[in-house]
Each structure stands twice: as C-alpha cells, then as structure tokens.
Design a binder for these strands. Structure first.
Length: 466
RNA sequence: GUCCCCGUCGUCUAGCCCGGCCUAGGACACUGCCCUUUCAAGGCAGUAACACGGGUUCAAAUCCCGUCGGGGACGCCA
C-alpha cells in the first residue's frame, strides 16, 4: 500500500514555526516513500476559522515549497459524512444519545475538580429506554470499562493507556457537528491515510481515536508523534517568544530553503550533517531518525544557516529576491548587471536579504550620509591630500578596474609611506559613509569612475567646509 | 490531582535499540590566533554535557529500578 499522509492545520491564525515543522515532516515522509501529501483544513470551529487564515497557510506552504498532492479539503464541506458515520454507530449500538445538558456536565466537572480528580462521564444516558422527542442530543461512543489500549508509535514505541481513563466521550455535538476526535478519524479513514504524523500534544487523543477505529471496524493507521518546539524558556513556542509565523520570516529576509533545512534538523538528524538540499532531504528523511525530546528553537542557528544559503546561491537569484526589499526602501531597481555585481559582493557578508538591502543603500542613494563617528575619524584635513592625489590619478584612468585601482593605490601609499588601510578607510567613509563595506576596490569598480570622483570631490569639499 | 511524554555541552544533536572502539564526536553561539584594506567569509585552537541515586556487569551515556526536573493532555476547542 502506498503511503498517504496529511497535514491538518486549523485555520485560526497564522501558520507558525511549530505547525509548519509538522507539515515538513509529513511532506518529507511522503516524498521519501513516493507517497501522497494531503492538505486538509480543520475548520469545524466556525467562530475561530477564517478565510484569511486559510489563504495565509497555503501562501506560506507554497513559499516554502511544501507542495501538496491533494486538497485542500475542508471539514466544513463534509458534515453529512460525519453524521452518516455517527448514525451508523448509533444503529450498531456502539454509541448512544446523550441528553445531559452542558450546564449539568459543567457542574459535575467542577465538582470533580474540587475533589482534585479528573471528571469522567458516568454514563448517565447509556441505557436510556426512551428519548425526549424534541430535545437536542449529543452522541457518545460506548467505551470499554476495562483492559488497556495500546498506541504503537513509530517514534516512541508502544504507549499503553488504561481503558478506565477514557469515558464515553462525545463524537457528535448537540448542533450536529462532529467533535475533533471523530472528524479526524473519519477523515483519515475516508482519505486512506496510512501514517498519522502530528504533534505530541495529540498523544492523549490517540487512544480515543483508536476506539473509534475499532467501533467502525477500520484498520488503525501508523502513528508518529513528533515532539514540540520550545521557546528559550522551554515553554511551548508562542507569540511571547517573538516572531513565530512563517510569513514573518519571509519578511525578515529569510530564504525558504534555510527555514526548511533548519526546521527539519530541529528534531531530526542524519549523523553530523547540517546542510541538506531538498533532494537529499527526500532521500534521507526517515522517522527512525526523528528524536523524542522537545527542541528549543534557536534563532542564531537559523540565521547562520540563512547566511550559508545566501552565500551559496547565485547572485542573480539573490538579486531577484532582494529587489522587493530594495523597493520597500524606496529604490527603483531592476535585475541588471550592476545589481548582480552589488549582490555578489554583499551576499558574502549578509545573513538575510534585509541585510543586503540595507548595505546596498550607498550604491543607490543620491547623497552619501556619513556616520558621525566615521566622519570624525576619517574625514579630516589629513585625508584631503590623499583624496586629491586619488582624484588626479583616477581621472586619467581609462580602465576603471580592480587591478588598475590597486596599482593607483599602490603608487600613493608607496610615495607617502602609508599603509593601505590608511588610505582605504578614509576612502571607504567617503564612498559608503561608514567604516564597514566590501573590498574598497570592488565598491569603486561598481560605482564607476565618474561617481567615485564626484563623491571624492564632495568629501574634500565637506572637510574643508567643516 | 490523574494520565502521558521527555531528560547528552548555553542551544541543535551523534552515540543508546545490539554495553567495551567515548579521555563522549559534530554544528550554532562564545573566546583566542591566523588570513586581511574595514567587515564578513575561511582556517586553526579553546571553554563547555551523559539530571541525580541505587542496582546488574570484569566493564554502563548505553540495560533495570527509583527520585528529581521539564513539558503536554485531561472540553458538546481543535
């Protein structure tokens, strides 16, 4: 039987880091086994589900390259399916109508809590002889009173639950909607899901779901419960920990491959390897190498990986990606030779696309803005003769290339008995406004002869004026 | 409270199933050095962990028991 897995988010907000890792594991598992990856939207919570959220989930998954083979299916489209199955169980005597009111149940639950124990439905309506004609009812599954339920988990081994811990739980609410546990099972059955890979917060639901499979007479799929992602305080990752939505990472200039690589390695490993191409992931990903213990999300390592991917991607591609970030800063740019050259020297020292856009500023800006401390230290009267000598020599250059520039600088430092740094730094400040930039010859070459001379003259003017 | 899961450097992890090759390996971060026109990148080196306590064994990070710690679940939410 071929592998079929699903990712089933509820559309009640942004797709976040924790959720998307579950999606990635399912996706990789499907690709590894040449199976199908299905997207299913669990939108039975009508008050909290939104269309925007559905759109955002699909947008984020598309950006990450998590292509799904079927779906998105929506639970809200399938109400009658659930009701049909619930009816079947009712007729088979495996479930019963419950007329207990929610208020009454709430009261009993409170009472049990006061005693310090968990509330379990006592089966009040289990053997009802007659039904009140017009009253709404919930449907409860008849569950075994003794014995144990074993969950076979591909990551954790066998987990055993005592049947006594599970009460006759509701499978269909008073309004005719299925409860989560019921809908999940029906969906997984009807979609022929072979492996249920999900977060470990669902472990406690699993025995209940197994009971539903049993009552319906269907085969139980394989289960794999992946550990949670934690924040730096070891609590479950949430908004408190800063940016956690996938879209936020796109906006911060992260590359999808970096995020996928990082999130996959969080809880999964393949020996000592850190960097994986998409194809390698497909080939190497197995559930055996998924760890059991929860992992703390480490933004620094993600940043490092992102830098790695930026450095190792061709400048043309990075250039294309960086354009929207430059436009956001108000620069109109196209993917031309100049931009590619700029990206080429900047990507070596950037960790995000935002970094590149920020440090590219001086190539596009009209007037160089000097950083105060840099200006004070390097745009001083002593620099004027250097700048003037440079202007003079550069003016007569026909080839404005790195090697030509190198020899011009060489002549100047030799004549004046200076070190290269003593010339390079003032020039750097004059051209870029700061003390940090790529190699000064590269910067000059990209800026071009006219622009460089113009800027150097401005610097001279600036010094003499102040 | 009950049930369940988890526990190797600060963090992600290898090793654990099938005890010895572990004076516990790699990566991020951090520190130092090298390279160097600044900053990165790169190279080299360094700091840093088997939660604790009992067993079993010639030998335990690895097997067993207990303790402690962290997390999750206990809904007519998903």
């Amino acid at each position: 039987m071929s592998v079929r897995v699903r990712f089933a988010p509820s559309p009640t907000g942004a797709l976040h880091i924790g959720g998307v890792r579950t999606a990635i594991f399912n996706w990789l598992f499907a690709r590894h086994h040449n199976g199908k990856f299905i997207l299913r939207i669990e939108d039975t919570d009508r008050t909290r589900s939104t269309e925007e959220s559905i759109a955002e989930i699909m947008d984020a998954m598309t950006w990450l390259g998590l292509d799904w083979d079927e779906g998105p299916f929506r639970q809200s489209d399938r109400l009658s399916v659930y009701q049909g199955y619930a009816q079947k169980l009712l007729e088979a005597g495996k479930a019963y109508r419950c007329y207990c009111t929610q208020e009454e149940l709430e009261r009993r639950r409170k009472g049990a809590e006061k005693q310090g124990s968990a509330y379990r439905y006592e089966g009040t309506c289990r053997n009802l002889k007659s039904y009140p004609p017009d009253k709404a009812y919930a449907i409860r599954l008849i569950t075994p009173e003794m014995g144990s339920i074993e969950v076979h988990d591909l990551i954790r081994g066998t987990i055993t639950f005592d049947a006594k811990e599970i009460d006759d739980f509701i499978i269909q609410k008073g309004d005719g909607f299925p409860t989560y546990n019921f809908a999940v099972v029906i969906d997984d059955v009807t979609m022929n899901i072979t492996h249920v890979i999900r977060g470990d917060d669902h472990i406690a639901n699993t025995p209940k779901q197994i009971l539903i499979y049993n009552a319906l007479g269907y085969d139980i799929p394989e289960f794999a419960h992946v550990s949670t992602i934690l924040g730096s305080d070891k609590a479950k990752l949430s908004k408190r920990h800063g940016a956690i939505s996938v879209v936020a990472y796109r906006e911060m200039g992260y590359l999808p491959e970096a995020l996928v690589n990082y999130l996959t390695r969080l809880g999964w490993s393949y020996g000592d390897q850190e960097i994986f191409s998409r194809e390698e992931l497909f080939e190497k990903f197995t559930l055996e190498n998924v760890g059991k213990s929860p992992a703390v999300f480490n933004p620094e390592k993600l940043l490092w990986l992102n830098g790695w991917y930026i450095r190792n991607k061709p400048a043309e591609e990075i250039g294309k990606l960086v354009i929207p970030f430059l436009e956001k800063k108000g620069f109109q740019v196209t993917l031309d030779d100049k931009l590619i050259k700029i990206v080429n020297i900047l990507k070596e020292r950037a960790k995000t696309l935002v970094d590149i856009a920020d440090s590219a500023e001086y190539f596009f800006i009209e007037e160089v803005e000097y950083e105060e401390s840099a200006r004070k230290k390097f745009l001083i009267p002593e620099s004027v003769p250097i700048f003037e000598a440079l202007i003079d020599k550069l003016s007569s250059l026909t080839d404005f290339t790195i090697s030509e520039l190198q020899s011009v600088f060489g002549e100047i430092i030799e004549k004046r008995g200076l070190k290269l740094v003593q010339v390079a730094q003032p020039v750097r400040v004059a051209l870029t406004g700061g003390t940090v930039s790529p190699g000064i010859f590269e910067v000059m070459e990209i800026m071009g002869k006219e622009r460089v001379i113009e800027i150097l003259k401005k610097a001279v003017h600036h010094i003499s004026k102040s």
